[in-house]
């Protein structure tokens, strides 16, 4: 595979296109997991602490597999923790949607609804990737995100069609998060050869099926589809929101305080 010599933020390592792709997908999963983890002990009920913990764990597992693979492609190879803990903010490739700070429970469910719908469409196609490692990671992930998507759907229905207050909160959350979902379906950051060669999935092709499913849930939940313009968002090229720095500071500070240590 051709190297794009895109800096990955680790000394001496030039990232290949495949590694770049795996890192972007892994960053989505890691950062989404980190935000969900912030809910633990604060969920609306005990069952939801368990469920959000499950989803966070699944996403963390996906991130680890993707980072392990990406790290193995770099020269010299690096480990999953090098990628998670020792890259600076500008080297992270996740969409801004997943780094946005937690609000109320409706915000988290609005985000999870679209994110898991995107991930399900992505992974259910990536199982056919010409790259057998990515295909195997996708095969495991697709089962997990199907559960996440169903979980988000159940809550959006309950909140949308629950009480007047929950309906209003769910609509507000959907309106606020919707502009940030567009970045999931942008393809400009991805090396076109990867898609043409059947290794990666074209994100733009996921918009129609993912959003059709989301729209059906929104309608069933008696909510209105937001009429908002997409946010101007550059997470995929490493230009994040201000909240990203604080998220990484928390995630990385202990590991960085003890460079070279094993945990």
């Amino acid at each position: 595979m051709v190297s794009t010599s895109e800096p990955v933020g680790i000394a001496g390592a030039a990232v290949t296109d495949v590694a770049h792709y795996a890192i972007a997908l892994g960053d989505d999963a890691l950062i989404a997991s980190q935000r969900l983890t912030e809910w633990i002990t604060l969920a609306p009920q005990l069952e939801e602490d368990v469920a959000l913990g499950n989803i966070a764990l699944d996403l963390l597992g996906q991130a680890r597999l993707l980072f392990q693979y990406a790290g193995s492609l770099l020269d010299p190879p690096v480990g999953e923790d090098d990628l998670a803990y020792f890259r600076d903010e500008r080297a992270f490739r996740n969409v801004s949607l997943v780094e946005r700070p937690n609000g109320d429970f409706a915000v988290t469910m609005a985000r999870l609804l679209v994110f898991s719908a995107y991930q399900l469409e992505l992974y259910s196609r990536l199982v056919q990737s010409t790259d057998s490692t990515l295909a195997a990671i996708a095969a495991k992930a697709v089962k997990e995100v199907a559960y996440h998507r169903d979980h988000a759907r159940q809550w959006v229905l309950r909140l949308g069609d629950g009480t007047a207050e929950s309906h209003a909160r769910m609509q507000t959350a959907l309106d606020a998060e919707w502009p940030w979902t567009a970045e999931l379906f942008e393809a400009g950051w991805l090396a076109p050869e990867l898609v043409a060669g059947g290794l990666a999935v074209d994100p733009a092709a996921l918009a129609q099926p993912a959003l059709a499913w989301v729209r059906a849930v929104v309608a069933e939940a008696t909510l209105a589809e937001p009429e908002v313009r997409p946010a101007v968002s550059f997470g995929r090229v490493g230009r994040h929101t201000e909240e990203m720095g604080r998220l990484l500071a928390e995630l990385q500070h202990l590991a960085r305080s003890h460079p070279g240590a094993t945990w």
Binding site: E38, T41, L46, E47, L57, L60, R64, A84, Y85, W263
Partner: peptide
């Protein structure tokens, strides 16, 4: 949880805290 120093430790701790919620249930 949000500060665990490796991804493996983070996963173990998440699973543990989740177990404790299960015990509560």
């Amino acid at each position: 949880l949000t500060r665990a120093p490796s991804l493996r430790r983070k996963a173990i701790l998440l699973a543990k805290v989740q177990d404790e919620a299960g015990h509560g249930l």
